[in-house]
Design a binder for these strands. Structure first.
Length: 307
DNA sequence: ACCCAGGTGAGGG
DNA sequence: CCCTCACCTGGG
């Protein structure tokens, strides 16, 4: 195994991956689908395929710094959604009058193709939680249980399967600790095969995910959308629920079921993209407009370590 | 001190 | 189905 002292910084390979408009790296990494990329100005830092990586969007494309093989670059393209047909998708979505009004401020969001395991852990932790704390929990998990020289975004199932509840609770997981331990054991033992679930048709995959502890409809839909590329999935969290109620039902309350049924009928095979735009809009530009917020947006990525 | 935060699971109508 | 509640925990 390669040591950590290869000099990722000085010997970093740099290349620019061409990308078609309207792709927006910043929005893609910051719209809530992934938790482990840190922004310093326009530069996003993260880990991909066991390598420290920096990505920046430039005029010519996405600049990538990191020790990535050609094959890993291919996978990175897919991970970042660089080849998503966004112009076409957004054109379709803009037939909807509400999205037509929203998309000018959210254009360029691409659905990523995340590692199912990392995605699962991230969204189990996200339940009834806030984003800064989710990020802290994941960082602590990685620091505490990481089994490779370069800190992975998320420790392996085997690693977490061996963790004690007490140690897991030390990562600010609270009542989610048993869920994490149980899914880790299920996946590590082979009883649950996340890759196999990804190959199932949408409904079947959804049912399989819903059997996992700590996984309800919202988390299952996030897996389907962010890890498995099943774009008919429409995760309904409080923000999206509110956005749909305000945008399409004159602010009248709808049940979770009604929201899902509406999204399926209205957006069909690209409901997941509609969800991303609605979500991102309500959390940013739409805040003042929707008037539902009681506190200003704080940017969790600009946290400074306290002394 | 008290409230909130990107849900889930269990229990009842 | 729909509704209600408890639930770990750090930060406003």
């Amino acid at each position: 195994m390669r040591g950590p002292n290869v000099g990722v910084r000085s010997a970093a390979r740099v290349q620019v991956l061409p990308v078609a408009p309207p792709y927006d790296l910043n929005r893609t990494l910051d719209c809530g689908q992934v938790f482990r990329w840190q922004f310093t100005g326009p530069v996003a830092t993260g880990v991909f395929s066991g390598h420290a990586v920096r990505v920046t969007q430039e005029a010519k494309g996405v600049r990538v710094e990191g020790e990535l093989s050609p094959q890993e670059i291919v996978r990175l393209r897919r991970y970042l959604g660089l080849d998503e047909p966004l112009a076409d998708i957004e054109r379709q979505l803009c037939r909807d009058p509400v999205l037509a009004r929203i998309i000018p401020t959210t254009t360029g969001i691409a659905l990523m193709r995340q590692d199912p395991w990392e995605c699962l852990i991230s969204f189990i932790i996200s339940t009834w939680n806030n984003i800064p704390k989710v990020e802290q929990s994941l960082a602590k998990l990685a620091a505490k249980f990481s089994d490779s020289p370069v800190e992975a975004p998320c420790p392996s199932p085997e690693c977490l399967a061996g963790a004690t509840l007490r140690a897991l609770r030390g990562c600010m997981l609270g009542y989610r600790a048993p869920y994490i331990q149980q899914v880790a054991r299920a996946v590590a033992s082979g009883g649950v095969d996340l890759a196999e679930i990804g190959r199932m048709p949408y409904e079947e995959a959804r049912r399989a995910l819903l059997t996992l502890p700590g996984v309800g409809e919202k988390v299952a839909d996030c897996m389907l959308l962010f890890a498995y590329g099943k774009y008919q999935a429409f995760p309904v969290d409080v923000w999206v629920k509110r956005a749909v109620e305000r945008g399409y039902f004159r602010g009248r309350a709808r049940t979770h079921r009604q929201i899902q049924a509406f999204a399926a009928a209205r957006f069909g095979a690209i409901a997941g993209y509609a969800q991303q735009h609605l979500y991102h809009y309500t959390r940013t530009a739409g805040r003042a407009r929707l008037g539902a917020s009681t506190r200003p947006v704080t940017d969790p990525r600009r946290r400074r370590p306290r002394s």
